[in-house]
Simulated scan of single mutants.
Amino acid sequence: MAQGALLVLMAPAAGASDEKPNGVKITLPSGAEVFWQETLHDTAGGQGLTSRFRFVMPDLAQRVPSTSGPASDFAEEEERGPIDIDTESGEVAGEETGGETGAATEYADTAQPDAEAGEMAEDGTEQAADTLIEAPALPAAPDVLAQDPVHQDVVWLCENWALPRIASPAPRPAQIVISLADKAIPFAAYDPDVVQLFEAFRLPPDRDACEWEPW
């Protein structure tokens, strides 16, 4: 297959936005319904051959969190007066605005005299702290934080819809991408009124399995 070539297998075109999409209807484990829109095969993503299974989920917008407004929106801070910190006594002088004074006080209170620092080194607590810095504690399953609310349905689609449709002995894809949208739009098109969600899975060369790629 030529670099970047695109092969399209398409279901009948979806209906208008106020109608149910046409195409193959699939009921997911959560009870949600999706409609297969098309399957694409390409090498444009730099991951080798990729199979893209595109679905329409009419109620996707109700199932995933949404944000509005620019990320830089925030309340303007009030003007602050000067803050003086006496490093000898830890006393703070100045206007108290938005908790800044509290932060400065905490900094002053946590300062350790040289003698106490020496004791810390002797009893081994400093060494223990260095160990924690080198091997910071992580959540038991950090990847869970990257999962979207319909992740389990997407995994089901990969395992039960995409995998059985991987052609054999045709060239085997290295990656499977499952995409959902609340309306049918052309591939790679952007529509600010359409909610879209994508998840990628690695397909091992020696077995049929959907290995989620969260990053």
Rank of each mutant, 00 (worst) to 15 (best):
M1F: 05
L7Q: 14
L7N: 04
A11S: 12
G15P: 08
G15T: 13
G15Y: 08
S17D: 12
N22A: 13
K25R: 14
I26T: 10
L28D: 05
P29D: 03
F35W: 14
E38Q: 14
L40H: 09
A44C: 07
G45M: 12
S51A: 15
V56R: 02
M57F: 03
P58R: 03
L60W: 03
V64Y: 05
V64P: 05
P65K: 10
S72V: 12
S72E: 15
E79H: 11
R80P: 03
G81S: 14
T97Q: 09
G99V: 02
A108H: 05
A111I: 15
D114M: 13
A117D: 07
D123A: 08
D123R: 13
G124Q: 06
Q127P: 01
A128C: 00
L132P: 01
L132S: 07
I133F: 11
E134P: 06
A135Y: 10
P136K: 06
P136R: 03
A140G: 00
A141F: 11
A141N: 15
P142G: 09
P142K: 11
V154P: 01
W161M: 09
A162L: 10
L163E: 09
P164C: 02
R165K: 14
I166S: 04
A167H: 07
A167T: 08
S168Y: 15
P173S: 04
Q175D: 15
S179W: 01
A181K: 01
A184H: 00
F187G: 02
D191T: 14
P192R: 11
Q196A: 15
F198I: 13
F201N: 03
F201K: 02
P204C: 07
